[in-house]
């Protein structure tokens, strides 16, 4: 474990806290993409199957938190706060994201075992899972400030994994090319959001697309 990965996981927890806090205090899930939230549950369920055969206090705790919280968010969006969910602006075609990740998982896993193929699927799916959310913000042209903090923290989590991978490569020749390639793509997909977030939200202005 290193400081970069610890900070990344912390940002991941923070993003989940911000999201649930926003939904429970405003009693609304407006501006949140249900499709992205559903993709995240799929990412965690397909990646953390090893909960059943490996145990590490830190990793297992986090995996349970991520699976549990993403299921809880979906419950909130389909249950109490369903009236505030507008599916007409959540229109990204996730079948292409799932299909693309599945093809890459079948073509280039580290090993052709069910666990490895599902893990690879999860890595590729996570790299694009934010697209429905970013697409929704693009379509509405703006986002609540709290929602932009959520997206920022979520983007920062995987962005911090990049120095973690560099650190691990330099100190222990640990090398996971699939995670690195997908992690870089994931972070690049946030780049225009990061730019607007930095130039607008951090200057105290509302998040509005030009």
């Amino acid at each position: 474990m290193n400081i970069f990965r610890l900070a990344g996981d912390l940002f991941h927890l923070i993003s989940i806290f911000i999201l649930i806090h926003k939904m429970t205090t405003s009693k609304s899930c407006s501006g949140i993409s249900f499709k992205s939230q559903a993709l995240y549950l799929l990412v965690y369920v397909t990646r953390y199957l090893d909960l059943f055969w490996t145990f590490a206090l830190y990793n297992s705790t986090m995996k349970i938190i991520f699976i549990g919280s993403s299921a809880y968010v979906l419950h909130l969006m389909t249950g109490p706060f369903k009236p505030t969910h507008d599916p007409n602006i959540d229109t990204f075609k996730v079948r292409y994201l799932i299909g693309g990740a599945a093809i890459l998982a079948l073509l280039f896993p580290y090993k052709w075992t069910p666990a490895e193929v599902l893990w690879t699927f999860s890595i590729w799916l996570e790299s694009v899972a934010i697209l429905p959310q970013l697409f929704m913000v693009q379509r509405t042209g703006a986002a609540e400030t709290i929602t932009t903090h959520y997206i920022f923290a979520l983007g920062a989590y995987r962005a911090l994994y990049i120095p973690n991978w560099i650190y691990r490569y330099l100190t222990s020749t640990f090398w996971d090319p699939l995670s690195i390639i997908a992690g870089v793509i994931q972070t690049v997909l946030y780049s225009d959001f990061f730019y607007i977030y930095y130039t607008k939200v951090l200057q105290g202005r509302k998040f509005e697309l030009p």
């Binding site: 990965r5 996981d9 991941h12 090893d50 490996t54 590490a56 990793n59 986090m62 995996k63 991520f66 580290y110 893990w119 994994y161 973690n164 490569y169 020749t173 640990f174 090398w175 996971d176 090319p177 699939l178 995670s179």
Partner: peptide, 10 residues
């Protein structure tokens, strides 16, 4: 570097 990943990352 080692390609086999021990899956010790989240």
């Amino acid at each position: 570097g080692e390609k086999d990943t021990p899956k010790d990352e989240l």
